[in-house]
C-alpha cells in the first residue's frame, strides 16, 4: 500500500470516522492482558489460572479489534476462549487431585527458569530499545469493512492472483484431522 493511499485513509479517519478513545482502550486492555497473564502463572488453583487465561484471551481479542483485525478477533474468541479453554477446564476437572493444590506450586529448578526468563526479557528490552528506528511511527489504517473478504481472497483465491495461502489452508485442515485422530487414540483406554 503506497503512502498516497494511507494518506487518503488517514484523512478519512480524521474526517470523523476515527476510533474514539483509542489510548484509553489500549492501556486498559493491555493492562488487563498483562495482569491476567501474571495471574495465570502465579495462581495455586488451576481453575483460577484458567479463568485468568480466559480474561487474557478476551483482552487480546480486544487489542486485535483495535488493530483493525476483526476477523482474527472473532476467530480468537471462538477458537481460543470458547473452545480451547473449555477443553482445559474439562481436563482440569478430570485430573484434579486435591493434594496438588496443597503442595508447592513452583518446581525444583525454579531459580534457573527465572534466570533464563530474565535473560530473555533483557534480550527483548535491548532489541526494542535499539531497534526503535525500524518501527516507523506511521499507523496505517486498514479498511475494516472488507477485512473478511480480503482474508477470504487470500485463503481461498486462485494460486496465481492473491490466493497465496490456499495450499497452507489445505495443509492446516489436514493438521486438524491428524490432531483429532491423535487426541482420540491417546485417550482411548484400549486401542
Amino acid at each position: 500500500m503506497n503512502p498516497g493511499m494511507s494518506a487518503g485513509l488517514n484523512s478519512a479517519i480524521d474526517a470523523g470516522m476515527a476510533p474514539v478513545g483509542t489510548p484509553w482502550f489500549f492501556y486498559v486492555l493491555a493492562g488487563l492482558a498483562v495482569a491476567s497473564g501474571v495471574a495465570v502463572i502465579t495462581r495455586r488453583n488451576a481453575v483460577h489460572s484458567a479463568l485468568a487465561l480466559i480474561v487474557t484471551l478476551l483482552a487480546v481479542a480486544g487489542l486485535y479489534l483495535m488493530l483493525y483485525a476483526p476477523f482474527v478477533a472473532g476467530v480468537q474468541i471462538i477458537v481460543y476462549a470458547g473452545g480451547i479453554m473449555v477443553l482445559f477446564l474439562f481436563v482440569i476437572m478430570l485430573v484434579n487431585i486435591d493434594r496438588s493444590s496443597k503442595e508447592r506450586q513452583f518446581n525444583r529448578i525454579w531459580p534457573v527458569g527465572l534466570l533464563a526468563a530474565c535473560a530473555l526479557l533483557a534480550l527483548f528490552v535491548s532489541a526494542i530499545a535499539k531497534g526503535k528506528a525500524l518501527f516507523p511511527d506511521r499507523m496505517m489504517t486498514l479498511p475494516e469493512s472488507s477485512n473478511t473478504q480480503q482474508i477470504a481472497t487470500m485463503l481461498y483465491g486462485e494460486a496465481g492472483k492473491m490466493g497465496q495461502y490456499t495450499f497452507a489452508f489445505e495443509i492446516a485442515s489436514l493438521l486438524l484431522l491428524v490432531a483429532i485422530l491423535g487426541a482420540v487414540i491417546m485417550t482411548k483406554k484400549k486401542i
Binding site: 502463572i41 496438588s100 518446581n107 527458569g113 527465572l114
Partner: peptide, 9 residues
Amino acid sequence: VLTRRNVVI
C-alpha cells in the same frame, strides 16, 4: 513454562 509444577498450567 519454566517454573510451574502443574502440567496443565
